[in-house]
Computed example of a mutant assay.
Amino acid sequence: MEFVERYNGSGLLIEVEKILYEFKGVQHIQIFQTKSFGKMLVLDGKIQLTEKDEAFYHEMLVHPAMLMHESPKRVLVIGGGDGGAVREVLKHDPKDVVMVEIDENVVKACKEYIGIDMGALEDSRVNILFEDGLEFVRNCRGRFDVVIVDGTDPNPISQALISKEFYRDCAKICDYFVTQSQSPFAQPDYFKSIYDNAEFKNKAVYLGFVPTYPHGLWSYLIGSDVMKIALDLNVIRKRFEKRSIETIYYTPEIHVSAFALPKWIAHLIR
């Protein structure tokens, strides 16, 4: 059996051994056992993660913003029902993590059939709310050191999470904001709309490699209205070592180099 994700006249084919779970509710959730990539989560036909390379994505989504912050103690994760982002956040020893996920079934299925959170979603510091992320941020009266958006490809469920209104509301409640921003190669329109709508006073794009995402090249956007996007390697390295963070993909050196953009991407967002 084969699973194929298609995008713009191309696609990725993955050999599947069996379907472990399937449910249609808020989203169409599928979990597969693959031959080469371990377990794989698919939402509405789009690959969200495979066990083999999920750390490539989650580490690059979380650690740059968390390490730019001197002491991130209160963190908001929007989306991220698989638990990978929360797992990485907890490596920084925060006091309080709020995860806002619209689809409770994603959390239940991932905990039962995949387990990449490694117990993070059961941690006493983590508070999980099953509600709309846009509404949560709009009505939020508290403040977070870092806000992390771990959302799906823009669709009717997640489209609001790439709106100007959402980014403006996020800017009001955090020091640093970070989101995945799609593939600038396979999805340039999505990528550019995210960059244009994120009207932070300070913002930057950085890149990472995730083999099972569209053509492997993936992007992230970090922004802030109150903090600079600082890239001092010595500072990042000292914080990384002090926090005793163990990673598979991320290093302080990769952190800094990820912000060096190819000319064609720089032209997309100039």
Rank of each mutant, 00 (worst) to 15 (best):
K111Y: 00
R87I: 02
F200L: 09
Y167G: 06
L41H: 08
I102K: 13
N105C: 03
H28M: 05
L233Y: 12
Y213I: 11
D169I: 01
A120H: 03
Q159G: 04
A186H: 00
Y206Q: 08
E104D: 12
K203R: 15
F37S: 04
S224G: 10
E112D: 13
G38C: 10
E59R: 08
R168M: 02
L233F: 07
P184H: 06
V256N: 11
G84K: 00
L49Y: 08
L67K: 00
D175Q: 07
K52L: 13
W264E: 13
D153Q: 12
F144L: 07
N8F: 02
Y57H: 12
S158A: 15
G142Q: 07
D189H: 08
P184I: 03
E70V: 00
F136D: 10
D225H: 12
N202I: 01
M40E: 11
H267T: 10
I148D: 12
V210C: 05
K172G: 01
Y7E: 09
D53M: 02
A204P: 10
T179C: 07
I116D: 06
D82V: 00
Y176V: 05
D96C: 02
R138H: 13
A171C: 09
T247D: 09
L12T: 14
Q182T: 10
F166Q: 07
R243W: 01
A258Q: 04
V235T: 14
L76S: 00
K203H: 09
G133S: 12
A171D: 09
C174A: 13
K39Q: 09
D145F: 07
Y113D: 05
G208P: 05
P252K: 03
I128P: 08
